[in-house]
Simulated scan of single mutants.
Amino acid sequence: MKKLSIVTLLLIVSASLFAQGVPEDVAASAASRPAAIVASTSWTAAFADLGGLDDVPFIAPANLIHPPEYEIIVGDVLKINNADYFIYAGYERMMQSMGSSIKKDEASMIKINTNNSIENVREQASLIAAVMGTQAESSKRVAQYVQVVEDGARKVREQGLDQLKVYCHSMQVFLAKDLGLSVAGTFGPGPVTAAQIAEVAKGGYDLIIDNIHNPIAKPFLEVSPTTKVVVWRNFPDRGGRDSLAEMVGENIEVLLQ
Rank of each mutant, 00 (worst) to 15 (best):
A27R: 12
A28E: 14
S29L: 09
R33E: 14
S40E: 11
T41C: 10
S42E: 07
W43G: 14
A45C: 08
A46P: 10
A46K: 11
L50S: 03
G52P: 13
L53F: 02
D54K: 15
A60V: 02
A62Q: 14
A62I: 00
A62N: 14
N63K: 15
I65F: 06
H66C: 06
P67D: 14
E69M: 09
I72C: 13
G75R: 02
G75W: 03
V77I: 09
N82R: 11
N82W: 02
A83R: 04
A83G: 06
Y85T: 06
Y85W: 08
F86H: 08
I87C: 06
Y88K: 04
Y88P: 13
Y88Q: 07
Y88V: 01
Y88F: 14
A89W: 13
G90H: 03
Y91M: 04
R93H: 13
R93F: 09
R93V: 05
M94Y: 12
S97N: 13
S97T: 12
G99A: 04
G99W: 13
I102T: 00
I102W: 06
K103L: 00
K104T: 02
I110M: 01
I110T: 00
I110Q: 04
N113F: 10
T114P: 10
I118A: 05
E119H: 05
N120W: 04
N120E: 02
V121N: 04
V121C: 05
E123S: 14
A125T: 02
L127Q: 07
I128E: 05
A130M: 01
